[in-house]
């Protein structure tokens, strides 16, 4: 596979380390009343769709960026690649 890195352009997937569902970005607030339930769901419950999936890839053999890759799990087509940092900052701005 080739991942089109937003800063470095197309790179071979071998340079990356895979983590999983991009929802791991949305770490719950520990002060919430049901924090234990939220953390349990955050850590253990993952979607595993056949089709487009937002997932985290780490460019370990490269610039060490964490990326959110939107990949079709059945065809390996990659629709979008974002820097996790940019996505997170954008999200907190819109809050």
């Amino acid at each position: 596979m080739i991942i089109d890195h937003p800063l470095l352009g197309p790179r071979d997937a071998n340079e990356f380390v895979y983590l999983g569902d991009a929802n791991l970005i949305n770490r719950p607030d520990w002060t919430e009343k049901d924090a234990d339930k939220q953390f349990y769901e955050y850590l253990y419950l993952r979607d595993n769709p056949s089709g487009y999936h937002r997932e985290l890839w780490y460019h370990e053999q490269g610039d060490r960026s964490w990326l959110i890759v939107t990949r079709n799990t059945s065809t390996h087509e990659i629709k979008q690649v974002e820097l996790a940092k940019d996505y997170h900052l954008e999200k907190s701005k819109s809050k």
């Binding site: 791991l24 970005i25 985290l56 780490y58 964490w66 996790a84």
Partner: peptide, 10 residues
């Protein structure tokens, strides 16, 4: 790096 970029990028 995960913590820095994905959890607390600010």
């Amino acid at each position: 790096e995960f913590c820095r970029q994905c959890l607390w990028p600010d």
